[in-house]
Every structure is written in C-alpha cells, then in structure tokens.
Design a protein around this nucleic acid. Structure first.
Length: 210
DNA sequence: GCCCAGGTGGGTA
DNA sequence: TACCCACATGGG
C-alpha cells in the first residue's frame, strides 16, 4: 500500500505547522473539522495572542473561543485548549524538550488523561509534534482500508493501529508519510459519497482475510 | 439546501 | 460493552 501511494502521490510534507507547539494546537483544533478552517483559527491566535502557551492561557476564555470560532465546536475546543495548555506547561516546566524525553507509554497515557484528547489527537501529537514512532489512525484510515478489504468497517482504533505497527518497522518518518498518504487517497479516491474508488492506486491489492 | 470535514466525552441500557 | 447524541463553522 505504502509503495503504491508514495509512487502515485509522493511525499506529503506533513504536518502543516511551524513548531511542535503549533502542531499540538492544530491537532486539537482539527478534530472533525476541515483543515482550512483550522488555519483561520490559528491565524487569529497568532495575530491576537502571539501563539505562546502563556499568551493563550492569559486570554479570557470567551475571547479564546471567539478567536477559534472558524474551527467549529469553538466553545468545546476552547475548554479543551485550556486544559491542554495547563498540561503542556506542567509537562515542560519551561523546558520544551522535556516532554519529548519522557517514556512513550507514560506520555501517551498522560495525554489521553487530558480532557479533549482522545487516541487520534494523542497519537497525532506524539508522531507529528514529537517525532515518536506511533501510527495515527483516523476516519480515512478506516474507510480506505475497509474499502479495500484490509479490515472490517467497524475495526477499533487499537486494532487498526496494531495492524500497521505490528507489520512495519517503528519508523516515525514512515508512519508520518503513510498516514498522510492515506488521508490523500481517502480524499481523492475513497470518498464517503462515492462507493467506487475510481482510478485508485490501491485497486487490485490483495490482503489476507482478517 | 445538503453533505462533508485529519473526534471526543457524556449519557443510557 | 454498545449505541446515541451534542458540539459548529465553512467549503463544494
């Protein structure tokens, strides 16, 4: 799958964010939301609050919600962002590299304990912000794989994650590209409304039955 | 107007 | 565990 996708689309250059911190904020804001809407919200935060953890946390909660309005679910996401910012400051204690140095399993567990961070957001932060070899599963991953008979349509997050991580080397660069490519092919060929994958580069691949 | 978008947490049985 | 639901904007 990876070779076919890479051959068709080439490197995707993910994640679209300047700093690890920006990637983390983007990971929360993009939950069930189009990335272009997230870009508007991030632009607002950069313009109005210098995009620093302390700067964002210093905003009145209502103001924060107003700034991220374009990303949708803005009231919920404002509360999630504040909870995450508290966690971020606690975890780094002013020393940004501290989070990256922690053992992976413990860090993932602590991320999942933050209100508003579920498995996909936690793993996106681990992989795309911190460079950890963790495979990110999302709606596209499930749809693309089930369309091509590589998993059941109702496969769980952990099940899908294991499918990749048990069969690939723990390589963050590989996981980064693979997930981004799955999103790309999901958008262009395995769309929800189009049951046929017209011209899909994965056409004809065979998988062992689950 | 309608569908969709890089989910998550709370409630209920 | 297995559903069901609220949350919300913006683009095609």
């Amino acid at each position: 799958m990876f070779e076919r996708l890479m051959g068709r689309f080439g490197p995707q250059g993910w994640w679209p964010g300047e700093t690890p911190f920006e990637v983390m904020i983007g990971a929360i804001l993009t939950q069930n939301t189009n990335w272009t809407n997230v870009e508007k919200a991030i632009a607002n935060l950069q313009r109005e609050a210098d995009f620093s953890p302390h700067g964002l946390l210093a905003l009145p909660p209502g103001r924060l919600a107003e700034l991220i309005r374009p990303s949708g679910y803005f009231n919920q996401k404002a509360a999630k962002l504040r909870d995450f910012l508290e966690f971020y400051l606690r975890s780094t204690g002013g020393e940004k590299r501290r989070m990256r140095r922690r053992p992976l399993a413990a860090l993932r567990r602590d991320l999942l304990a933050v209100r508003g961070i579920g498995p996909e957001t936690a793993d996106s932060i681990l992989l795309y912000a911190l460079g950890k070899p963790v495979f990110v599963v999302d709606a596209y991953t499930r749809r693309v794989l089930s369309r091509h008979g590589a998993c059941r349509p109702d496969a769980s997050y952990d099940e899908l994650q294991r499918l990749f991580m048990d069969h690939l080397p723990p390589d963050a660069a590989l996981f980064n590209e693979f997930h981004a490519l799955l999103v790309r092919v999901g958008k262009e060929h395995c769309r929800k409304s189009v049951p046929r994958c017209e011209g899909c580069p994965l056409e004809g691949l065979e998988f062992p039955s689950p």
